[in-house]
Design a protein around this nucleic acid. Structure first.
Lengths: 337, 337
DNA sequence: CTGAAAGCGCTTACAG
DNA sequence: CTGAAAGCGCTTACAG
């Protein structure tokens, strides 16, 4: 293969210098319109492709962003963050940036080992998807690269984070159940487990408070142990009429359990979820749930990263992106006529 | 932030030149072991990070591979290729390469528009996941970049492709049904639709032939129209005892349909799939299916790409990677004792 | 064993 | 409006 065509090649053909070609192709001042047009056309004809590496050398920027997902959020059944990555990747490409995926292995997370993309200056910043361990957060922050966290926030760590509005999402969907006549409403989730679940619980609680429905301890159903592993859900003696699940997957598990007992959803029990991930659609019936606004979150996070690349000191703090309720068939209106 | 530390910085601290530092850090000849050690240690202390951009300039390689997925294979319910991408990305990282994901929009595919990663010399090669339209294949081949196709092959196009062994996969799993006493076995799939489905059908047919079971036209059930859109599956008058579905998703749909009719799987009908994707696990009962060996396929494809980067003329042709049967609960042994 | 020189492709700041 | 010079950080080929 003949070598790639460079600005110099174009310049020589016309009898100017690469400086002029550079100006022309970048629409900079200082080239006559006529010449500029001629250069652009010739570049097209010669199949000129811009060499990003040269630009990277010049301004020390790679125009890549590392997207890090802890491996435990990964796998055939957990494509949620991969979909997130896809959205981020799309937004980045619109901006002339590119996303490089790095799956963070648990060992590396424990040993505070930074990914190769850091060691090789492959990226100008990091987007972290999902919860990672505190020491690793500190490690990332000790490094000068702009970092934005998504779908995870930790109070202590003074980090820039784009999260979904867990509180108001759960609040809205609980309100919806109440509007449909439900009063005995359970919350399914380990409220000591993650900050997201806590916020979702509190949104649920706020809705109850506003409607003067007393919070019933029996109606807080644990779904996972302290390691995040799902456990059997214990149904209370006196059953509620509706369940607010902290995520779609748990709603899926709960519905399977209810069906095993011979109950039907939504005829016997209404169930709602959170996330609008794959579990919301594969469950029978389809789940009414709170949709996480992946695209808006991606845009916001990428915006933050870019500002931080321009201005290293920039702090954004935590921002919450509101999701919308997606209505499917898992809720029954039990209001008396 | 102070500027990134460079080889020159290290060199000056010790009183040598960047040439020596380069040799030392790359374990090249021509530096005393003592000095080499000293340099490496100092590099560590100073937090030196290699600048990939400089290397890229030198040898005109980006050390990125573009991974292209047509958007129609994308979405919340179709994470299969995203999982593939993840595997590719992991393999690449082991090799000091990085994968940049590009979702190919249908308009761009029709208009033969190459992705920005090509225009900007961001990548040294392409991996294409899944079927793309012929003109776009031609377009990709007209460009000098090494390209390997995965999970798709087209006879005419003289391309390098890593595909799953559809023929023997279907053959094996049909044999398995026959060993379990089944003789009336239907194939579910549009056999005029894609090359993969055709091969799977032929593998099924080979198994029948070997067992002297006559192919019954009534037992070839169409699952999708010519655009690949799933259609209602028409069950034959005389029902088979088992179904070989061309993919897990269709097996999932078929089982739902059988259940609607009041049948049970596997008690009344045995059903097997292909792919071992998410549908194999979410279906009730879990599907016995042929697992596509994603990791092995990724390694092979990346190996091909790297050889092609080294040697532009290199041709590999089509290679098939054998999958394994994953046994779950969708097949019943109906052999008379 | 160590280093001076040149070069990868582009851009910036300055001179004409 | 156009270009000569210098530089981004590294490596290669050669000289000492």
């Amino acid at each position: 293969m003949k070598h790639n065509v460079t600005m110099k090649d174009i310049a020589e053909k016309i009898g100017v210098t690469s400086v002029t070609v550079s100006k022309a192709l970048n629409d900079k001042e200082g080239v006559s319109d006529e010449l500029k047009e001629k250069i652009k056309q010739l570049a097209e004809e010669m199949g000129y492709r811009f060499n990003t590496a040269a630009r990277s050398m010049k301004d020390g920027l790679s125009f890549n962003i590392g997207v890090i997902i802890p491996e435990r959020f990964t796998g055939m059944l957990q494509s949620f963050y991969l979909n997130f990555y896809q959205s981020i990747s799309k937004v980045l490409e619109e901006q002339g940036y590119y996303g490089i995926l790095h799956i963070l292995r648990s060992e590396d997370e424990d040993e505070l080992k930074l990914p190769r993309i850091y060691q090789e200056q492959k990226v100008d910043g990091f987007v972290i998807l999902g919860q990672i361990k505190k020491p690793y957060i500190k490690k990332l922050q000790s490094v000068e690269l702009p970092t934005v966290f998504m779908d995870f926030y930790d109070e202590e760590a003074n980090m820039d984070a784009v999260i979904t509005d867990n509180f108001y999402g759960a609040y809205d969907i609980t309100n919806y159940l109440i509007r449909n006549g439900h009063e005995k409403i359970a919350f399914v989730g380990n409220i000591y487990s993650t900050s997201s679940i806590q916020d979702r619980f509190l949104g649920y609680y706020k809705s109850l408070l506003e409607h003067h429905i007393k919070l019933n301890d029996q109606y807080i159903l644990c779904d996972r142990d302290e390691h995040g592993k799902y456990i059997e859900i214990d149904l209370p003696e006196e059953l509620p009429t509706a369940f607010v699940c902290n995520c779609d997957q748990v709603a899926h598990l709960l519905i399977a359990k209810l069906k095993d007992f011979g109950y039907r959803v939504p005829e016997d029990f209404s169930v709602v979820g959170f996330d609008n991930d794959i579990y919301a659609t594969i469950t029978e019936p389809g789940l009414t749930t709170v949709e996480v606004n992946i695209e808006e979150m991606s845009r916001t996070a990428i915006g933050f990263i870019q500002e931080k690349i321009r201005d290293k000191g920039k702090k954004h703090g935590r921002i919450q992106i509101k999701g919308n309720i997606v209505y499917r068939d898992s809720v029954k209106n039990i209001k008396k006529k």
